[in-house]
Structures are given as structure tokens and as C-alpha cells.
Computed example of a mutant assay.
Amino acid sequence: MHTVEYSHLKPEQGQIWLDLGCGEGRHCIGACNQQLPMTVIGVDLGFQDLIKAQEKWRETNDFHQQIGLPELEPSHWLNANGSQLPFADNSIDVIICSEVLEHIHDYLSVLKEIRRILKPNGRLAISIPRRWPEWICWQLAEEYAQVKGGHVRIFNHITLVREIRELGFDHYRSHGAHALHAPYWWLKCAFWHQPDQPIVKKYHDFLVWDLMEKPKLTRTLEKFLNPWMGKSSVYYFTAS
């Protein structure tokens, strides 16, 4: 499940792509699957997440070979802190930072590092939780904002875009994503102390089915709802 649309980042042969806060590698694997010779690097502070990312990359590549699809481009995985990245100035073509900044107290230090390592005219995609669906989660369950390593803030999106632009970026596109996932998190928070509640499990099963089958009805419905109800908001920038 990808939050960022790769086509908006204008992928080209020979580029260096960095997924900052890659988690278990979903956007890295998607970038490797674009069938363009490029360097793809996943960076995360969680070592175990990087191990899982490597495993998922291998599993996906093996599956591609079994069904006759092209092999994935190689991937590289790095355990590092987003505020102290081991890359040279102006060395990366494209950076993805998806669902990361809401977990970081000093998120501006990460944005400054992104600006340092991104090439002039390089492209940046950032996604964060949309304000009002996230606010509902915080109201339904106090524990939602108290999970270790969880969300530490609800972003004011206008302020965030302004802060990124002030660091030397031009904002050129935005969109919502995962509208059908917002009700799942509301249900999960509403029944926080009843994790086995059948309605939560049934909705989760529905999301898995939707992800695997991609029926036209739900894909059309989510596309219609994303602009105002998408669980995530995605912003695209170029380094000026």
C-alpha cells in the first residue's frame, strides 16, 4: 500500500532515491519496482524494521521471478538518525518521507537535513496524517497518542507547508490518500480496550480484501473521498 504517487516524483534512470523512515520498506520496494535502473536506499532508526524490509524485498523479488515479472532493482538499507544523515550535501535526487514527521519532536531538524542532502531541483514527497481524522482518533482514545514511538502532534498543514517552503522548497502538488482507512482507525480507537471487537476485525478484513482485489467500486469511492477524508495528506516539493 503506497501513500506517495511515484509518477508525481518524475522518476528517471540513474537517480538516487532515499526513503527516510522507510519502516518495513513499502515505498522502497515500490521504487525498486519501477523498472528503471536507479539506486534505492531505505533509512530507518529501527533496526528490526530494516531486517523486515530486507525480507519483504527478497520475498517480493522471488514472487516476481516465479510469475515471470522483471526482477526488482537492488535496494540498500541503512540504520541512521534522520537528523544526522550520512550523506554528502546535494547528493540525493528524490526523497520520500512518509508518515514520519508526526513521530518526531524536533521534526525541523529532519527537514533541514533533507534540504542539505537533496540536489538542486531534487524532489521531495512528505505525507502526514490529515488533521481532522487524526483529531478524532486523539479524542476517542487517550492511549492513541501515548503509544511508545507513536504520534507526538497533530500538524497544522498550512504551517508545515510554509515551514518547508521557508527552508528552500517550492510546493507543486498535494493530494489525500487512504480515505477508507480513516474509519478503521476511528473504530480501533473507539474500542481501544476491546481489541477483539468483531466490527474492528471485520473492517480490517475488508481493507485487506480491498488491497488485494482492488475492486472498481471501492477504488472509485476512495478516489472520490480522498480529497477531504483521506487519512493521509501528501505534499510534493522541489528544492529551489
Rank of each mutant, 00 (worst) to 15 (best):
2 H>M: 11
7 S>E: 14
7 S>F: 03
8 H>F: 14
11 P>A: 13
12 E>G: 09
13 Q>R: 11
25 G>S: 08
28 C>D: 01
34 Q>Y: 03
36 L>C: 12
42 G>C: 02
44 D>E: 00
46 G>V: 11
49 D>Y: 08
53 A>C: 15
54 Q>W: 03
55 E>S: 15
57 W>E: 09
57 W>F: 10
58 R>N: 12
63 F>W: 12
65 Q>V: 05
71 E>Y: 00
77 W>T: 10
82 G>N: 04
82 G>S: 00
82 G>K: 07
82 G>P: 03
82 G>R: 01
84 Q>P: 06
85 L>N: 05
85 L>G: 00
86 P>C: 12
87 F>L: 05
88 A>S: 06
91 S>R: 09
93 D>M: 07
94 V>P: 01
98 S>A: 08
103 H>M: 09
108 L>V: 15
108 L>S: 15
111 L>D: 01
111 L>G: 05
112 K>D: 04
115 R>T: 03
115 R>A: 11
117 I>V: 09
118 L>F: 06
118 L>P: 12
121 N>K: 15
125 A>F: 14
127 S>A: 07
131 R>E: 13
136 I>R: 05
139 Q>N: 04
140 L>V: 08
147 V>D: 09
148 K>I: 12
148 K>P: 09
155 F>I: 02
158 I>H: 09
163 E>L: 15
166 E>H: 11
171 H>A: 06
177 A>W: 12
177 A>S: 04
178 H>S: 14
179 A>V: 02
183 P>G: 05
193 H>C: 02
196 D>S: 10
204 H>R: 02
205 D>C: 09
213 E>I: 07
218 T>F: 11
218 T>N: 06
219 R>K: 15
222 E>Y: 00
223 K>Q: 13
225 L>R: 01
226 N>K: 00
230 G>V: 07
231 K>A: 05
231 K>M: 06
235 Y>H: 15
237 F>C: 00
238 T>S: 15
